[in-house]
Design a protein around this nucleic acid. Sequence first.
DNA 1: CCGTATCCAAGCCGATACTG
DNA 2: CAGTATCGGCTTGGATACGG
Lengths: 132, 132
Amino acid sequence: MKNQMQWEEAKAFCETLTAEEDALTREMVARLADKRSLWTMAVLAEADAPLRFSRIIEQVKGVSQKSLTKSLRGLERDGLVTRAVFAEVPSRVEYALTLLGLELLEQVAPLWMWVAGSVGAFYRARRAFDRR
Amino acid sequence: MKNQMQWEEAKAFCETLTAEEDALTREMVARLADKRSLWTMAVLAEADAPLRFSRIIEQVKGVSQKSLTKSLRGLERDGLVTRAVFAEVPSRVEYALTLLGLELLEQVAPLWMWVAGSVGAFYRARRAFDRR
DNA sequence: CCGTATCCAAGCCGATACTG
DNA sequence: CAGTATCGGCTTGGATACGG
């Protein structure tokens, strides 16, 4: 039951947070579900170099300019990516992952791996459930 | 750079998934962002015993009957909680966390802890951004 | 007690058109 | 090139009322 303790530990730690901190924590976790934000960060991580807006939108397939802009603004606001504007014509804007952003990705990786590895279990559960 | 490798490893592993598996993985990760689902599971984990619908709705503050029902159905469908109906009047329904559900919570714990511990960094980033 | 059905307000997102 | 502005469809979620 050492695993259970890990969860309890997390719960206990969260109790020490102020309401504002707790809200912010939830907001950050919620970002993970926002497919686009996570995917955008992954693209930047993979490139391992600053990317222009147009390069990113190519790789995050299906995203609209508006949504990508919004995602990037949010990521920038929370210190997960940087935004550098170059005074050229035509204009050039480069985005890059921050250290904090990379750390977040690293934290997500094990969970993502576990979910991906357990996908069979979820699939079977659904099959069983849907059969009634 | 061993941390970076962890992320790359996850990316590589995801490449081996079928489109359907990948979609399901994303769906499961998305569930984590659904505040209510995670919170509901946490309540069940804390109770460490089956809970009635009405007990749960008391602890997941602010949730409507409709939303909680929807969350529980989703969790049940994916094998994260069980639902037991007792033929009594008035009717009684008990929900409990499955082993899979507990495992999921355990996987989430480290990430959640990291985010909670980094909340100061996010807060400072926002302050700096908003001052501009 | 537990769940469903309906209505309604708010927010998301893509498409499109326009600006520096 | 990298946005902003606007519109319209779609989904989400609370409130309420009702049924099993």
